[in-house]
């Protein structure tokens, strides 16, 4: 049973990691990247969401 559970984890862990990385990428891009255009567009939301902004 534990061997079965372990192999299931090994073969299906990819979707979680992929979803997690996409989510982290979106939050980084929208919330943290300091490029001027992105910063200005997301400015109010960054402040309101508690991200370090300037």
């Amino acid at each position: 049973m534990s061997t079965l559970a372990q192999s299931t984890v090994a073969t299906t862990v990819l979707p979680f990691v992929a979803a997690m990385l996409i989510g982290l990428g979106i939050v980084t891009l929208a919330g943290h990247v300091q490029a001027a255009a992105l910063h200005d567009a997301a400015h109010d939301v960054r402040h309101a969401t508690g991200f370090p902004c300037h």
Partner: peptide, 24 residues
């Protein structure tokens, strides 16, 4: 404010991906 709505939706979709990945 339109950009704020857009980026708010985007950030919460990002949070959603992370949260649902953990839930899954």
């Amino acid at each position: 404010d339109g950009l704020s709505i857009l980026f708010s939706a985007l950030i919460y979709v990002g949070y959603g991906m992370i949260l649902v990945a953990c839930m899954a």
